[in-house]
């Protein structure tokens, strides 16, 4: 069954086209990682999948039904999104943040009942933030905050979860922790995971399939071994990359090559000139 399918999607912000004729299907329970250079429309694709931006052309379907046929609340019960940043001007506690995930199941001006609280506790336990429940989110470390936001998404009990660079600016331990969480979510709850990432190596280690965007189009879709080839990557990213096999299961490993290793040395800095 297709959890999500995108066909001939074109998106514009004003006059600028951010996605051109993008098509893809994501099977239920799949782990898809969207990669590509900055400004190629990865975040826009994610937002279009979540119905947050209206496409100029093309359709997005969820479980074989166009997302325009769902109400916002219905959509929120099936699909959760973990955004790149969370505003911190009005600091809620972790528990208050997580329980907001119950919003699509609640009415106007209503209060959370025992069922909602139980769902929030379960989500917090899942992402291991239970001990931080009464802490304010603006006082957490980057990794803890990311786990709190993921707990909110899990509290929605979605069948699809979209994440926008969830491991950016985290240390390796936290990166692995977040990726492991997603893998566990998929394994234990059958949730479809779609993630935007700049980390090609994490993408190779966790993704069933990768979608490479370049120049606002789909360059290639397929398993990591097919997408992470140096010819393709060098062309799309426009830099020299070394691709070999990771000692972990033989998936591709990508190393960006510093200029000094490819002959063209940077010009020496002359004194007094910036």
């Amino acid at each position: 069954m297709n959890a999500l399918s995108v066909s001939h999607l074109t998106c514009r912000y004003g006059k600028k086209t951010v996605l051109t004729d993008v098509s893809l299907t994501v099977t239920a329970g799949e782990f898809l990682v969207i990669i590509g250079p900055n400004g190629t429309g990865k975040t826009s694709l994610l937002k279009a999948m979540a119905g947050l931006i209206t496409p100029g052309a093309g359709t997005v379907s969820m479980f074989d039904r166009p997302i325009t046929g769902y109400s916002r609340r219905q959509l929120a019960r099936i699909l959760a999104i973990v955004p790149q940043q969370m505003p911190m001007d009005f600091p809620f506690t972790v528990e208050e943040t997580v329980i907001m995930g119950r919003s699509p199941m609640m009415g106007l001006a209503s209060f959370e009942g025992p069922v909602d609280l139980a769902a929030a506790r379960e989500a917090m336990a899942f992402t291991e933030v239970s001990h931080l429940a009464s802490q304010r989110v603006d006082q957490l470390s980057g990794g803890e905050r990311q786990r709190a936001v993921i707990a909110r998404a899990i509290c929605q009990q979605p069948r699809i979860i979209l994440l926008d660079e969830p491991t950016a600016s985290l240390d390796p331990a936290h990166q692995i922790r977040i990726m492991d969480l997603m893998e566990k979510l998929r394994r234990e709850h059958g949730v479809t995971v779609i993630m935007v990432s700049h980390d090609l190596n994490l993408a190779a280690l966790y993704g069933d399939r990768l979608l490479l965007l370049g120049n606002n189009r789909v360059e290639m879709t397929g398993p990591p071994v097919e997408v992470l080839t140096y010819e393709l990557l060098e062309r799309v990213y426009g830099c020299v990359l070394l691709v070999d096999k990771s000692p972990l299961g033989g998936v591709p490993r990508v190393t960006p090559v510093p200029s000094r290793h490819i002959g063209a040395r940077p010009a020496p800095l002359s004194a007094g000139k910036h």
Partner: peptide, 17 residues
Amino acid sequence: RPMNLLLLGQEAATSLG
């Protein structure tokens, strides 16, 4: 309650229904 969600930003609120 929707106002609480708006504090997270328009898009986050929308994605929460």
